[in-house]
Design a protein around this nucleic acid. Sequence first.
DNA 1: TCATTAAATTGTT
DNA 2: AACAATTTAATGA
Length: 231
Amino acid sequence: MTNNVQTLAMLRAAAWARGLAPEQLEQVERETQDRFFAAGEIVCHKWSMATHWIGVVEGMVKVDVLAADGRSTTLSGISNGGWLGEGSVLKGELRPYGVVALRDSRVALMPSQTFHDLRGSSLTFCHFMIDQLNARLGQFIALAESNRMHDVRSRVASCLAELFNPQLNPRTGPVLQISQEEIGRLAGISRQIAHRALHELEDAGLLQIRYGSIDVRDLDGLRLCARAHAA
DNA sequence: TCATTAAATTGTT
DNA sequence: AACAATTTAATGA
């Protein structure tokens, strides 16, 4: 249950909620919780039970895995309007990743029971879920291709463009409040390499680097760069 | 409002 | 990886 205005607006505006019957939407609003996480806080631990489907109301969270020696890499970033964790909820398994707030974030938590109720009763929800899983698959295919075939600049461009994936991150604004260190984790490179790649993208006029944030000026240009092979 | 300081982030080698 | 420089936010006069 949540009284938060932003969270309620986010639920009602979600693509999967548009086709719901009034009583179904009421159930969602009644059963979905609402929590605030400060930057750096853990939203859910690795290997924890997947008890909720997670939506980002406002802010940004990352999905990451960390090695025993403390190194960590980021698999995905999710910002305003994005949902994550459906895979583990569908399978009823432990999450094979951790979720961490990249900056102060408000997060919606839909209980897995509610999730399964929708899955069984709403065709539009099921359609959304097909699109969601398909987008996730495409994301990881692009990631594998980018890692194996493309240079560093294209990889960074690809990772940034994914933060604007219309299915996975439907309401990302042009200003990404994310440090170069986190960009590096997202692209699987060091902060120094990320720094250099970002300046190349800035010189190409695709974005503007600010303190603690990236201002994306040419999203289509980033997407083109993400598919380019040449150095 | 301004100076001081610590913390975070970026820049450079 | 190490270090320097810069930006931001918090504090107190």
